Amino acid sequence: MRIGINLLTLTQERFGGVEQYIKNLIAHLADSGENLTLFLFLSTNIKNIFPYHEKIQIRMLKDPAQIHESIRQCQLDLWFCPMHSSYISDVRVPCIVTIHDVLHTAYPHFVQGGLEENNRYYHRFAPSFRKVITVSAFSRNAIANQLSIPKEKIHAIHLSAPAIFDKAPADVIRKKVKQKYQLPDTYAIYPSSFNPHKNHQNLLKAILILREKHNTALPLILTGYANKRNRIYQSVLRFIEEHSLENQVRVLGYVKPDEMPSLYWNSSFLVFPSLYEGFGIPLVEALKAQRPIACSNKGSIPEVAGDAALYFNPERPEEMALRMKEMLNPLTRKKLWEEGKLRSQHFSWKKTAEETLHVFRSVIKKR
């Protein structure tokens, strides 16, 4: 198989969930043992994020005519678009896309372009999609219902955590990270971008309720890259200052990937209050790090966390506060830890790559 992978809108940013998906999927496709060659189509010089592999070739292109000519020259069997806003017209080989979620249909005011512009975009290109891959059964149903794409064309394939989470960090590394960031012995962790649906405000309100109504000062560690002009980031800092939470809530910003496992392993639990997720990689990171989870009951989150979590309505800070208070009970954490060990075995990038290849083969065989 000769697969063209459309990464023309990929930029060199601190990686979020979609970028983690792309990097890990490509690496595991290349190592699958399958007779394939992957042609990565890039418009900016970020090929350094993909390690050298004999099955990976890079095509640096920007002009549409060059892209179409290169597709022809590479004699592609398939054109794969794993990112939103990257589709191009008139590709002469079968096209498979990944749609991670349809956040714009649930919270149009959170997404640039809103409901109508994003729907027009999908309706323009959807007829050319031979198959659609998505990342959860929740997203599969939402895509079918909201974008009117036939459900039989959509395949739900779960993701996993970065490979560095596959084994526990050494004690000396954990201690080093704890000292570097001056972490307390007990804390909840929330790794997240500062986007509206990530629901930082209600989480901070819940932390305040714990302190004011339940006499519980739970330390909270927030990680995730943010532009200093990001309004959600600014509102988080403002809330912390206005309610004198500086000694309780720490905003670490971007943390290097090799330090993230230690932040999880040193924590008491993951809190995940997101209003909407297509998947939610931090949930799997917590499972792999054997950390219990207190999380939202919205979107795909229950599908991913299963029985390894305590759930709350993310729009009710009081309920969120009570669940986090429950998480401070060692017996509760132990029960969830045992469930999490079983649940974590469900997720692997090898499995993601195998199921993706199955979709690829089904389209090429029909061709």
Rank of each mutant, 00 (worst) to 15 (best):
N48G: 02
I49R: 05
F50C: 06
F50E: 05
F50S: 06
Y52P: 15
E54G: 11
I56R: 12
I58R: 03
M60L: 13
M60G: 02
D63H: 13
A65R: 12
Q66N: 11
I67W: 07
H68R: 12
E69K: 08
E69S: 14
S70G: 03
I71V: 15
Q73N: 11
Q73A: 07
Q75S: 05
W79K: 04
W79P: 09
W79C: 05
C81M: 09
P82S: 03
H84Y: 04
S85D: 09
S85H: 14
S89G: 00
S89P: 04
S89W: 04
S89C: 01
V91H: 04
V93A: 06
V93F: 04
P94D: 07
C95N: 01
V97Q: 02
T98S: 05
H100L: 02
H100K: 04
H100F: 08
D101E: 03
D101Q: 03
V102D: 01
H104D: 00
P108I: 00
P108D: 00
H109F: 00
F110P: 12
F110V: 01
Q112W: 01
Q112P: 07
G114L: 02
G114V: 02
G114S: 06
L115W: 03
E116Y: 10
E116M: 13
E117N: 15
E117W: 08
Y121F: 15
Y121C: 13
Y122R: 06
H123G: 02
H123M: 12
R124S: 08
F125R: 07
F125N: 10
A126M: 11
P127T: 07
S128H: 09
S128Y: 05
F129L: 12
K131V: 06
V132E: 13
F138T: 10
F138A: 09
S139M: 02
N141W: 00
N141Q: 13
Q146K: 08
L147Y: 06
L147N: 09
S148D: 11
S148N: 14
I149L: 12
P150N: 12
K151Q: 12
E152F: 11
K153R: 15
K153D: 15
I154F: 13
I154M: 14
H155C: 11
H155Y: 11
H155Q: 14
A156W: 00
H158G: 07
S160A: 15
A161C: 06
P162E: 07
P162D: 13
A163H: 04
A163T: 12
I164W: 02
K167T: 14
K167Y: 05
P169D: 01
A170W: 00
V172G: 02
I173V: 13
R174L: 08
K176R: 15
K176L: 05
V177G: 01
